[in-house]
Amino acid sequence: MYGLGLLKGLSVTLNRFVESYTEDVRWLIKRYAKVEFRSSKDARGTFTIEYPEQQVIMAEEFRVNPFLVYDEGENGEKNIRCTSCGICAKACPPQCIWIVRSNDPATGRPVPQPAEFYIDTDICMNCGMCAEYCPFDAIKMDHDFEVASYTRSLKNKEQLMKPATYYKSIRPLNFAREEAARAEKAAAKAAKA
């Protein structure tokens, strides 16, 4: 019969229409648990979420803008892991990292600490190459994606530094893996000596 295919198609749309209401009623009370359901294979009904209140589940590997990791000392001093070797600046495809090496004021010899460290986060394209090729696990990718600002955001060393505990909180699996690798290396070194 002519028009049957049309009705068949429209039944799909009608089904979706009804489902969007029944699903809303179903998740009325625990609507914050809905986000998990939305990214599962049985997701039905309205697919959108109400952003500032609800947020999609963030994957551990998600990456925006790099930051510098520092270890907290006993008296609260910040021991920056970066040794200003410059590998991140070389690996960076858009070349948005500037490093100024520091010298010991007394002897004039270079010390393994950056005097200045700039990342132009307007140029940064969030590729994560710097974090991948850093041999000291000193530069890592952040999870903070709300980066809109009124000014240009050239970040200096102070703004880029974040504690290792923060890194552990956003990437627990990666942190555990790196700590294990470092402990193994230290053990091998101790066994040799």
């Binding site: 295919g5 068949k8 749309t13």
Partner: peptide
Amino acid sequence: RLLSENEIFV
């Protein structure tokens, strides 16, 4: 089901 048999579409 939505489109392949839809008469207008075809």
